[in-house]
Amino acid sequence: MDAQELKIKDYLLEGIVTEQFKQDKKMPSEYMLVEQFNVPRIKVRNVYNLLEKMGYIYSRQGIGRFMKHQRKQLDVVMTGDVSFTEKMMNQTAHYKSIVTKVEQVSPEHSIYSKPYVDASNTLYLIERLRFIEDEPAAIHRSYVVVENFSEIKQASNRISSMYAFYKQHGFTDFHSSFSQLEVAFPTELDRVMLGCEMLVPLVRVESDNWANDQQILLEYTEILYRTDRFSFQLLEK
Rank of each mutant, 00 (worst) to 15 (best):
Q180C: 10
M67T: 03
Q214M: 11
D81A: 11
S59I: 01
F149K: 05
G15K: 03
S110A: 15
I42K: 06
L13M: 08
K68G: 07
S59V: 08
E30I: 08
T18K: 14
A137Q: 04
H69C: 00
D81E: 14
Y58V: 06
E188A: 15
K96T: 09
I42D: 05
V76P: 00
K7A: 06
I98G: 00
L189T: 07
Q154R: 08
S179L: 11
G62A: 13
S120L: 15
Y56V: 00
T79M: 04
D81Q: 13
N46K: 07
E52S: 05
K22T: 04
M67I: 06
S142Q: 14
Q154D: 13
L12R: 03
E52Y: 01
D190F: 01
V117H: 07
E19D: 06
D24P: 00
L194R: 04
A3S: 13
M162W: 07
V82R: 05
I98M: 09
T85M: 03
A184D: 14
I16R: 04
D75M: 13
P28I: 02
L189C: 13
N90E: 13
E108G: 04
Y95I: 09
F66N: 01
E52H: 00
V146C: 08
S29V: 01
P40C: 04
E86H: 08
L194T: 09
L12Q: 09
H94N: 12
M162G: 04
V144Q: 08
S110P: 01
S160F: 09
M67C: 08
K96N: 07
E182K: 12
V102S: 07
L202T: 05
V99M: 07
M88N: 04
I57C: 05
L74G: 00
T172K: 11
V47E: 02
A138R: 03
R45Y: 03
E127W: 09
F232W: 15
L125R: 12
Q104W: 03
Y116Q: 12
L199S: 05
L224I: 09
V44D: 00
E147K: 15
G64E: 09
E197A: 11
I63Y: 08
E219F: 05
V205P: 02
R204G: 06
F178P: 11
I139G: 00
L234N: 13
L189M: 11
E182C: 10
M89N: 08
K22I: 10
H175F: 15
L234S: 14
D228R: 01
A164F: 10
S142L: 10
H69N: 14
L189P: 03
V82I: 13
Q168S: 15
A184I: 15
P136T: 11
E86S: 08
A137F: 04
G64F: 03
S156V: 02
Y225R: 09
S110F: 07
N212L: 14
K96Q: 12
Q233H: 14
V34H: 02
L33D: 02
L129A: 04
M67L: 12
V145Q: 08
E30P: 00
P115S: 10
I98Q: 08
V192Q: 14
M27V: 02
T227H: 04
A138S: 12
S179M: 09
Y48A: 03
Q61L: 03
V77K: 09
